[in-house]
Design a protein around this nucleic acid. Structure first.
Length: 808
RNA sequence: GCGGAUGUGGCGAAAUUGGCAGACGCGCUAGACUUAGGAUCUAGUGGGUGACCGUGGGGGUUCAAGUCCCUUCAUCCGCACCA
């Protein structure tokens, strides 16, 4: 068949008949199947897109044939840095290039033949969309979940611009490789930390890959411990956070982060110069270096002492850059005997090392970091570490010097970007009224087109007077806008809520519709978003729930990560390596169904692997065999009926086995085995075809069943053959075949016979035999008798339909 | 260092969850039909070839282990001075 013509033909028919459009009337049977939307890139679709979208579309089509009302939308994550960088390089405006890219990608996505509901398409850079992204910001602000503070950001001194975290690779700017430095700017944050505990707890109930859940757990980084108050000789007080309160008697010094405010007030005149030098040096170090584990521990004594509240012992106060001001209290207690970092530090600066924990039945050489039994700890001696952690904090609590405390490593989400191509932050600053959110009725705050976006260290919008100068919505006086734009992850943190309401001009989403359509039943995309997009989306969903807009807790019930298709050389495809394989040539030459089938057959979906097109031949042959048989059957008259004999039973067995196996495989994204089962099934059909006398009616039905199983995996091709067979309606309006379990029951099976667990022979056995009958048959078999060698049978293990083990 | 995986023929990969390892393919070998074939079809294809050995290595549990337990090695990914 002329595959290009056929594809076009069916794509037009599907579109005309609105086959892929979600029907809200059937929302009770909804199945929300979502693939992560794409960033509009200049080159068309790459293999990664295909690998994400084509097999998932087959899954969605399978669900549709199973009777679900499938909603599978597609859109574009259209704001972001690459378009802006492209603009800086070429002078082509980000809006123009993005629109062009989207147009190209839309076309190739349509050519793929996926059942995307284009009536629900969204593009995050359009006013209709970013208006509601701004709405989201304002709602978070009103709820106290968006706030503004000064914070250090990544700054590239050569590009003269702020970089997103993702653009900092090993401490360097990804474009010019200059060392990135920290610079303090006033920024907007979302208070994701308010949800740290729920984000952690609710992971347990999600049908997500274990690895992804583990990554989020790590990222959230819950640790339970206590805060303990140390009092300085000066009378100043500070808290340390520790998970090892049981080692409190082993403290031989304390360390403040160099940024800690007490450093200035406590430093003695003799130590002033050394401390100031150290603080200065630290401020120059970039965070990557500072956080490197294998770096030597350094620090400076500040010339002041603090009192350990548990035993009144006086200990020196140091500053050291391995203590982070941003985590815990920015101060730690140093217990060299039971922490390897402290051990290294104490050894270097000749501080005392006192053991306070002894190990139980293990090598407890210092530094000993495991739990054990307390010693040198006064009344706590003899307690286990676990008991002591509680009782020591409890004792301190009585005098107000200690509390149990849980810390998280998760930080608030910095959403300001000093960039042009994003949603403007909908806030104005008024001389009288201060920070004022733009009223929802005034949204969107439009992103102006005529902006100078060449980087010079300032937000591009700051230079646009027409944009910047405005009036205060409260007092009507002079005000200026926030010149920053929102991180594009804000746009993508709620897009799945917009799809079912894509054309709603009045609200971002209708709560009644959302509560019916969400959560997403199956979400498919790359694993690289584990701690960004997937975490942000969960946060936003929970925040909107707490504002009363939703009544579900989690946006994505079930998540699948597709694997990565590597270049033929086994490395990640990249232009610089020159190993990029484009899907276009294959689509052009063989058609989209062929490429789709091969992607499904050639790889384990969640694994991926190096590209190799040898297997395409196998798919072409497979499709050719299907077509030949279909054309032949379409021309065959039913003829005289033949009774159901053993050949017919075999055919029905093959058919029902395929139905059962393929359904199971489709459910679990095991596309490679689903295709394999279909290959087996077509082989069985050919085998039946080679017979002299056939039950043509049954044969045709069997072939139709085959086509129905194939349809989700090769949509255009299947439609065409379906039509050749004489069907008038789309194959996707047919029901998916059901397995007839009775056809899978065989009268007899071949069993492997083992003697003392070694296979000796195989024999056919009827399934309804008793143990005695089986024994009788076995003892008549020459090979078995020989293997038994006249020995007495001690035990007979029979696994029906599979194996028999004779123990002698 | 912590966390998550992966390791099976020449290659891509399967294995109903403890029951005949290598399904389905690619490649290869032989044959058929052909002027020809890089088309199509048929047969064979883990290794040795006697009955034995084979799922990274070593141990264990079991009638039975790719699958469960212990141990070890290698590779990939993520996080990493988080007190």
């Amino acid at each position: 068949m002329d595959i290009k013509k056929v594809e076009k033909k069916w794509q037009e028919i599907w579109e005309k008949d609105k086959l892929n459009t979600f029907n809200q009337k059937n929302a009770d049977k909804k199945y929300y199947c979502l693939e992560m939307f794409s960033y509009p890139s200049a080159s068309k679709l790459h293999l990664g897109h295909w690998y994400n979208y084509a097999p998932t579309d087959s899954f969605a089509r399978y669900k549709k044939m199973k009777g679900f009302e499938v909603f599978q939308p597609m859109g574009f994550d259209a704001f972001g840095l690459p378009a802006e960088n492209f603009a800086i390089k070429t002078g082509i405006h980000p809006k123009d290039s993005t629109e062009q890219n989207i147009a190209n990608m839309e076309q190739t996505l349509r050519e793929m033949g996926a059942m995307f509901d284009w009536s629900a398409e969204i593009k995050t850079c359009e006013e209709d969309y970013y208006k509601w992204t701004q709405w989201l910001f304002i709602k978070l602000y009103e709820k106290g979940l968006a706030y503004r503070k000064e914070a250090p950001v990544n700054w590239c001194p050569s590009c003269n611009t702020v970089l997103a975290n993702e653009q900092v690779v090993n401490g360097e700017c990804e474009r010019c490789h200059s060392t990135v430095v920290k610079k303090n700017l006033t920024q907007w944050f979302f208070k994701i930390t308010d949800y740290a505990e729920e984000l952690l707890q609710k992971l347990d109930g999600l049908d997500w890959p274990e690895k992804t859940k583990a990554m989020q757990r790590n990222w959230i980084g819950k640790s339970m411990g206590g805060e303990i108050e140390f009092t300085c000789e000066s009378g100043d007080k500070f808290n340390v956070f520790t998970t090892r309160a049981d080692t409190l008697f082993g403290v031989s010094y304390v360390v403040l982060a160099p940024e800690h405010p007490l450093v200035k007030t406590l430093t003695s005149p003799e130590q002033k110069e050394a401390v100031e030098n150290y603080v200065f040096e630290t401020s120059k170090t970039n965070e990557i270096d500072r956080l490197s584990t294998n770096r030597e521990k350094t620090g400076v004594f500040i010339g002041h002492y603090a009192i350990n509240p548990i035993n009144g012992k006086k200990v020196p106060i140091y500053i050291a850059d391995y203590v982070l001001f941003s985590y815990g209290t920015g101060a730690v207690m140093g217990v060299p005997s039971h922490d390897s970092r402290d051990f290294a530090f104490a050894t270097k600066y000749n501080l005392p090392i006192t053991r306070v924990i002894k190990g139980v039945d293990c090598d407890d050489e210092l530094p000993f970091e495991e739990d054990g039994i307390l010693m040198n700890s006064m009344e706590f001696d003899g307690l286990t570490s676990e008991e002591a952690r509680k009782s020591i904090i409890n004792k301190l609590a009585m005098s107000g010097k200690g509390t149990h405390k849980t810390n998280y490593r998760l930080r608030d989400w910095l959403v300001s970007r000093q960039r042009y191509w994003g949603a403007p932050i909908p806030v104005v600053y008024c001389e009288h009224c201060g920070t004022v959110p733009v009223p929802v009725s005034d949204l969107p705050v439009k992103l102006p087109y005529d902006v100078e976006f060449k980087p010079d260290g300032k937000s591009p919008l700051a230079k646009h007077e027409g944009f910047m100068n405005t009036t205060c919505p409260i007092c009507g006086g002079k005000a200026t806008r926030d010149p920053d734009t929102l991180d594009t992850f804000v746009c993508s943190s709620w897009y799945y809520l917009r799809y079912p309401n894509a054309n709603n001009p009045k609200e971002p989403f209708n709560p009644a519709i959302i509560n019916k359509m969400l959560p997403v039943d199956k979400y498919v995309g790359g694993p690289e978003h584990a701690c960004m997009h997937l975490l942000y989306s969960r946060f936003i969903t929970k925040a909107l729930r707490d504002m009363g807009y939703l009544d579900f807790d989690e946006p994505f019930k079930s998540l699948v990560h597709q694997g990565i298709i590597l270049g033929p050389d086994g490395f990640r495809m990249s232009k610089s390596r020159g190993n990029v394989v484009s899907p276009d040539q294959y689509v052009e030459q063989y058609g989209s169904d062929t490429l789709r089938l091969y992607l499904m057959f050639g790889f384990s979906y969640t694994e991926g692997g190096p590209w190799n097109d040898d297997g395409i031949k196998a798919i072409l042959k497979f499709m050719d065999r299907i077509e030949k048989l279909g054309v032949k059957l379409a021309d065959t008259k039913n003829g005289k009926n033949i009774d159901i004999g053993s050949e017919e039973k075999e055919l029905l067995y093959a058919q029902n086995y395929a139905v059962k196996a393929v359904s199971r495989d489709m459910e679990t994204f095991s596309f490679n085995t689903a295709v394999a089962r279909l290959m087996e099934y077509i082989n069985a059909l050919y085998k039946y075809d080679s017979l002299e006398n056939k039950n043509v009616k049954l044969f045709k039905e069997s072939y139709k069943t085959f086509m129905l199983l194939l349809a989700p995996l090769a949509p255009h091709f299947s439609e065409e053959i379906w039509e050749i067979l004489g069907n008038k309606k789309s194959i996707f309006l047919s029901d998916y075949p059901e397995c007839d379990e009775n056809a899978l029951i065989r009268d007899e099976n071949e069993l492997a016979i083992q003697v003392n667990s070694k296979i000796k022979t195989r024999i056919m056995l009827a399934n309804n035999l008793t143990e005695e009958q089986i024994k009788e048959i076995l003892l008549k078999d020459e090979k078995i008798v020989a293997a038994l060698g006249g020995k007495e049978i001690k035990k007979l293990i029979i696994i029906p339909k599979r194996i028999i083990n004779i123990i002698v």
